[in-house]
């Protein structure tokens, strides 16, 4: 039996939709990062040990140590009560300094309560307005 053009095209499109769906959902695997506050990090430490995390917090004043002649930084972020230490290599944003709000992405090591960061973002104050509006 010869298929009509319409059926073939609809079949092809359906196959395409399935493929795209597969791409999207398989792409999710291994790319997920837990976006957490520091208190949640504390609570979920066992569950997320060794996994990707994205943590919001303020740079603990006085904690920044920079390796001489290299762009290697060790610092701690804090919410006032809890803290986590961070190691980061690379250029830091212009805004990076004591007390500013940062987002750190990387692997979490629960035993050392430490993040080996791959990305260090400082909040761009005018792109996002959450800071002033958050209750």
């Amino acid at each position: 039996m010869r298929l009509r053009a319409r059926e073939i095209v609809i079949g092809g499109l359906s196959l395409g939709i399935l493929l795209i769906g597969y791409l999207v959902f398989s792409g999710m695997r291994g790319q997920q990062q837990y976006y957490l506050h520091l208190d949640e990090l504390d609570r979920m430490a066992a569950e997320i040990d060794g996994k990707g995390v994205r943590i919001n917090g303020r740079v603990e004043p006085g904690s920044i140590r920079k390796a001489p002649q290299r762009l290697v930084y060790d610092f701690a972020i804090t919410d006032g009560q809890r803290r986590v230490t961070v190691h980061y290599e690379g250029v830091v944003s212009d805004m990076f300094k004591d007390g500013i709000e940062v987002v750190v992405e990387g692997r979490y090591d629960a035993r050392r309560n430490h993040i080996e960061a791959t990305r260090l973002l400082t909040k761009c104050p005018s792109k996002y307005q959450a800071d002033t509006a958050r209750p």
């Binding site: 999710m28 837990y34 976006y35």
Partner: peptide
């Protein structure tokens, strides 16, 4: 809690 997907996801897809 929030789970984000980073740049590699978007590149890969």
């Amino acid at each position: 809690h929030r789970i984000t997907v980073a740049a590699p996801f978007f590149n890969q897809v």
